[in-house]
Amino acid sequence: MNRYLRSYGAAVALLAFPAAFLAVFFLLPIAGSIAQSVGSTALDFSHYRRLIEVPLYRSVFLRTLEVALIVCVICLIMGYLCAYFIASLDSKWRTIAIGLISFPFMLSVLVRNYVWTLILQDTGLINRLLVDSGLILLPLELMYNRFAVVVAMVNMLLPYAILPILSSLLAIPLELKTASSSLGASEMRTFIRVTLPLTVPGAAVAALLTFIMGLGFYITPAMLGGTREMMVANLIAFNVKEVLNWSLAFALSTSLLASTLILYMIYRALLPQAVVLKAV
């Protein structure tokens, strides 16, 4: 008991610094921005009223959630397949594969968006190849639409899906699979009854990470999305930087934060308790 208390005290002491850091550099600014969204002196909800009344804001919010969800689902599927493959490699190749997955983190987001431009545009890599080889006559519309935005976002968020799923795959003791097959289960059955349930916590983290990060995308829709793709972050940036309407920008970001939290709670409620404790 005493020992438990002592280690508990040590944990508190160790956590105090990061907690203080987060309080000062994360919670405080967030509290400040929420406060500013309802006016600096008297309570003023006019900016929130605007978000509700002007149809533009509602439709951009819905688009943002939609795009983030699509990207999240694709990342989850592709990330799972990729992680499953990597988990089956021997340790040398696995290290190489993880290195390759982490490599794009060293490039700036902006550069990666430019690269996608060069690949997807009418005179880009894919269309050149297809047109020059005579497979198609007119270039495909790959750029300036949701397709381009989703492709680039998946590209940028995929590592956040692969890594947590991979770690939960690697945590599965090999004996379990052996046991399962020795009891007569086919490989498919082993996957569905043993592997998949054990990786749900990793997949849950992957989904959460990609979805929440996807909500905040800004440069990608601006560069690759053409006229129709616009996300909340683009509206926030405009109000912060161009017209200095910070209250409206804070109202937008507070709403985005609130909707993220609500979705997060729904998400938690839907997951089995055991997974919640392990993962989220």
Partner: peptide
């Protein structure tokens, strides 16, 4: 006018 016109422009885009 910038804020109002941009709002209208974004609406038009969508």
């Amino acid at each position: 006018n910038l804020a109002r016109v941009t709002e209208r422009f974004n609406e038009w885009r969508l």
